[in-house]
């Protein structure tokens, strides 16, 4: 668990959450999540029927990979909220960097909560996921 006194507003934590995303990892996520939508799993359907340049990743795969940065940062079981918008598609071959920026720490009745802005960008600098997270931290 993080200590509030060890945190500074504006601090940025970042992590490469996937390097050269494979179609196989997208299928792996389909199998685990249960979402087999052919726009994610079936190149023939995605290109010839749906009209996309290739299959693309589930938004929830990007959010799940980005979640690793946050739980690595705040510790296990400390998250209070996590959410965001899928702002651009993620394609096979993409490399994603997730960033969490501490925006504030709130102290209430012996407890402390850290608020983070979260953004994940691809190798071209395009934001693919943008949101926020809040987590319990030690008040000191």
């Amino acid at each position: 668990m993080l200590r509030a006194s060890a945190l500074a507003v504006g601090q940025v934590h970042e992590q490469v959450v996937v390097d050269n995303l494979t179609r196989t990892q997208i299928v792996q996520y389909a199998g685990a999540s249960g979402d087999y939508n052919p726009i994610h799993t079936d190149e023939v359907f995605a290109t010839q029927v749906a009209g996309y340049p290739s299959v693309f990743a589930h938004g929830m795969l990007t959010m799940g990979m980005t979640g690793k940065l946050i739980t690595d940062l705040v510790g296990d079981g400390q998250l209070l909220s996590y959410g965001g918008r899928f702002t651009s598609q993620v394609w096979p071959g993409d490399t994603l960097v997730a960033r969490a920026t501490l925006t504030s720490i709130e102290h209430t009745e012996g407890e402390a909560v850290a608020n983070f802005e979260v953004a994940t960008t691809n190798q071209a600098g395009v934001v693919v996921f943008q949101g926020s997270a809040t987590a319990r931290v030690l008040p000191d």
């Binding site: 938004g59 929830m60 209070l80 909220s81 959410g83 965001g84 918008r85 899928f86 949101g131």
Partner: peptide
């Protein structure tokens, strides 16, 4: 498509 997702724990 999935546009947004928010969780409260």
């Amino acid at each position: 498509l999935h546009a947004e997702q928010h969780f409260t724990y």
